[in-house]
């Protein structure tokens, strides 16, 4: 799913300041971190209080959309609610904000979230981890199920750089070296030989060609 983090309240307030009547739209599509009805209500309360401190009183209406990235669902959930609304504040990712902009072209749509990455939830360790770069040419067969495009800081295709130390990436001691993980995994599977093959430079523009999916 798309992992997001809420923008600082100040930034949201600044973007809302020209408007009075605001529809706050949660999204139930991706579930972690949650950004549905409950979170939309909490945000409305926080913004209401912070607005008052600035001498501004907003009128909020709160709803949630099953999936903001689906144009049909976005349109059917939002259209009945927009009477008298100046702007929509979306708790969806960038896809959600843009889908709403497309289905409701006369309204201002503002983001409340920063989309961070495509990731998964590790429930044991209670963390959200980046896992896919949507690169258009999945390599996971070659790398033992660990993605070097999403997880190696340099997106290396032919093995680790010289900065890999004690299993950590040179960028930060908190970041595991993806190539160390790939090598450990492949040697466990007895498939280190896979890495002898030189992977040619990749086509970074595949996502341009694949923009339209027939799905």
């Amino acid at each position: 799913m798309i992992i997001t983090a809420q923008k600082p309240l100040e930034e949201i307030l600044n973007s809302l300041s020209p408007y009075n009547s605001i529809l706050i739209a949660g999204c139930d599509g991706c579930t972690q971190p949650p950004r549905g009805l409950k979170e939309a209500n909490i945000l409305a309360q926080l913004l209401g209080l912070a607005g008052k401190q600035r001498g501004k009183s907003f009128k909020f209406k709160v709803i949630t959309v099953p999936k903001q990235c689906d144009s049909f669902l976005a349109a059917t959930s939002l259209k009945p609610e927009i009477e008298g609304i100046d702007a929509i504040l979306s708790l969806g990712c960038g896809v959600g904000v843009q889908t709403i902009t497309e289905v409701l072209p006369d309204l201002i749509v503002l983001p409340a979230q920063n989309a961070l990455f495509i990731g998964g939830e590790n429930r044991e360790e209670d963390v959200l981890l980046e896992r896919c770069a949507a690169c258009g040419d999945c390599l996971l067969e070659y790398t033992g199920g660990i993605c070097p495009i999403a997880r190696c800081a340099k997106h290396l295709l032919n093995g680790p750089c010289g900065g890999s130390q004690d299993g950590k990436c040179e960028v930060s001691p908190d970041r595991p070296c993806a190539w160390q993980q790939i090598i450990e995994r492949l040697s466990k599977m007895g498939r280190l030989d896979k890495l002898e093959e030189i992977k040619p430079p990749r086509n970074w523009n595949l996502n341009l060609a694949q923009r339209k999916s027939q799905g």
């Binding site: 340099k154 997106h155 290396l156 032919n158 750089c161 040179e170 030189i198 040619p200 430079p201």
Partner: peptide
């Protein structure tokens, strides 16, 4: 060379290129 990651240098906000890796550079 691959080069040290931009995040540990003096322009840590820069966009890293890494279009090709050091082995692909040798081959090129």
């Amino acid at each position: 060379l691959s080069g040290d990651h931009q995040a540990i240098g003096n322009h840590p906000d820069a966009k890293g290129v890494y279009d090709i890796d050091s082995i692909q550079l040798i081959q090129m």
